[in-house]
Design a protein around this nucleic acid. Structure first.
Length: 498
RNA sequence: GGUCUCGUGGCCGAGUGGCUAGGCAUAGGUCUGCAAAACCUCGUACAGCGGUUCGAAUCCGCUCGAGACCUCCA
């Protein structure tokens, strides 16, 4: 490896050298979706960020176990005492089984992930599949004296926990403030403090999602599932825990407390948070009505969208910013990204057509060799610097120039030599396809047809029948294909469809 | 109100003490029947004010502006 990987740890607020607990194994847990409605583009960004992290770690030969959960119970609509479960609520509204709700949106979620070429996690556990494990965690916390039972529910005792630990250290909260500002709110008599959060909630008569427990019929608290499932599959201590920035408090703060209370250990070594996708400067969220569904984005069927954008355009757009920066959505930015993506996609297509050839009398161009090798190094450097995909893409565009000049014969294969050539190809392919997860969209299957048209094009050209030439060119153009009419050959390239 | 983050050229977006990404747009050039694609060249930007420093977009302070979290949100 060129230089060491550094990751920004939200807990310390610093970039730290990445040192897995048990190399070459890496355990990574990311908070998945609550499957009570369609995922929107903001959700996609988070999962895409961690997809790239997963991909890069694997690319670097780490043996990653990537766990991303499905939340299918326990996530309440609000924090009031009579808070409804999000999934149970939809089930009631539509008069269907909660698991139907879960199934519908889980399937939809998977389709969206596939659309954006986001790889499946290695394990995708669901909360309802781990009720027993969650009960066990609660029992451990009770045994540690850091939770209490009240009216059939179990709550985490933050004041007690804070005697030994520091609740709030991830999000910078001060417990005293939390206890003070949140006290005396109504409907919270069960809790010793409003800041206390539920580990287990008693199910009311009409609550349809319910399980037996030592404390009566009820359901698990939302924060608990992640603690139960992450430690089950990754051990009591693991390397990376990720999620959207908006989960930092209270969700991840609660997880830290639960993990420590239940195991006596710091469960997570590196906390990572991806930033929000915004629209006109404000966070994309369902309640604000400024969210797009992936389908709307592709078809352009949304009042904020001027046109549709392909999934890879969106992927490219998102990866052009750093995961920890907010990214603002706009049509202009998407349109610019579309052109950039097309340029890169043409490179993806060309690279498979390149074919190294020795050439007599061509001397090695050391300057070119050096340049190419240093750009390749830069790709690793950029990703090693807290997964800086934006910089990586910049370097890939520099490689693309080399690829284009090779293709056009402006740079001879023999000038850079076999070894450098191979490195160029492997680096470009590795980072574009494997690490960034970009791919060519469309068309390869119609390649023969395009070639036939290009043959007619060439014949018409030789006959100087320029009307025909222009006609063919226009026809292909309307299908998003640009004719490339070069000195010694004719080829095509992806172009935007207007 | 509390906590925190951010403000980069026409647009998007990296960079976080000196070597100053990249994409899009614009302009010029090579190529072309004309184009397109590709390649080459061109942009000295870093909210404002003050300070630290040999040197700051990058560190510190203040002002202005934007956003996030503090209730559910990826």
């Amino acid at each position: 490896m060129l230089n060491e990987l550094k990751v920004y740890n939200s807990l310390s607020g610093k970039k730290e050298k990445f040192e897995p607990l048990n190399p070459p194994f890496v355990g990574m847990y990311v908070c998945g979706p609550t499957v009570y409605s369609d995922v929107h583009l903001g959700n996609v960004r988070t999962f895409m960020c961690f997809d790239v992290i997963n991909r890069y770690l694997k690319f670097q030969d780490y043996k990653v176990r990537y766990v991303r959960n499905i939340t299918d119970v326990g996530h309440l609509v609000d924090d009031a005492d009579a808070g409804e479960d999000k999934i149970g609520r939809i089930a009631k509204l539509e008069k269907i089984e909660p698991m139907q709700v879960v199934q519908r949106y889980t399937t939809g979620f998977h389709e969206v992930m596939k659309l954006f070429n986001i790889l499946s996690p290695d394990i995708e556990p669901s909360a309802t599949g781990h009720i027993i494990e969650q009960i066990e965690v609660i029992q451990k916390i009770l045994d540690a004296g850091l939770a209490y039972e009240s009216e059939g529910s179990v709550y985490f005792d933050i004041a007690k926990y804070n005697e030994q630990e520091n609740y709030g250290k991830l999000s910078g909260r001060v417990v005293e403030d939390l206890l003070e500002t949140t006290r005396n709110l109504d409907g919270q008599e069960e809790k010793r403090s409003k800041a206390d959060f539920a580990l287990w909630k008693k199910a009311s008569e009409e609550h349809i999602m319910r399980w037996p427990s030592p404390w009566g019929i009820g359901f698990p608290g939302w924060h608990l599932e992640c603690t139960a499932m992450s430690t089950k599959y990754l051990g009591e201590q693991f390397d990376i825990h990720g999620g959207g920035l908006d989960l930092k408090f209270p969700h991840h703060e609660c997880e830290i407390a639960q993990g420590k209370a239940a195991t006596g250990k710091e469960t997570v070594k590196y906390w990572m948070h991806s930033n929000m996708l915004t629209v006109n400067g404000t966070k994309m969220s369902k309640s604000k009505g400024n969210s797009f569904l992936p389908n709307q984005l592709v078809t352009g069927d949304h009042e904020l969208l001027e046109k549709g954008y392909s999934p890879m355009t969106v992927r490219f757009f998102m990866l052009q910013s750093h995961y920890s920066s907010p990214l603002d959505f706009s049509n202009d930015a998407l349109k610019a990204a579309e052109k950039g993506y097309i340029r890169l996609a043409n490179g993806m297509r060309l690279i498979s057509k390149l074919n190294y050839q020795e050439e007599e009398g061509v001397e090695i161009n050391e300057k070119q060799q050096k340049q190419i090798n240093s750009i390749c190094d830069n790709c690793y450097r950029a990703m090693n610097d807290d997964f800086n995909t934006a910089q990586t893409i910049a370097h890939l565009f520099n490689l693309l120039k080399k690829i284009n000049t090779l293709y056009l014969g402006q740079l001879k294969y023999a000038e850079i030599g076999r070894e450098t050539y191979d490195r160029l190809i492997n680096t470009f392919n590795g980072f574009v396809f494997d690490v960034l997860g970009l791919q060519e969209e469309k068309i390869e299957e119609v390649d023969p047809i395009i070639h036939m048209l290009l043959k007619f094009y060439q014949e018409a050209k030789e006959a100087k029948d320029y009307d025909k030439v222009d006609e063919i060119r226009a026809a292909l153009k309307s299908q998003g294909i640009a004719v490339k009419d070069m000195k010694d050959k004719i080829d095509w390239a992806y172009d935007e469809i207007k």
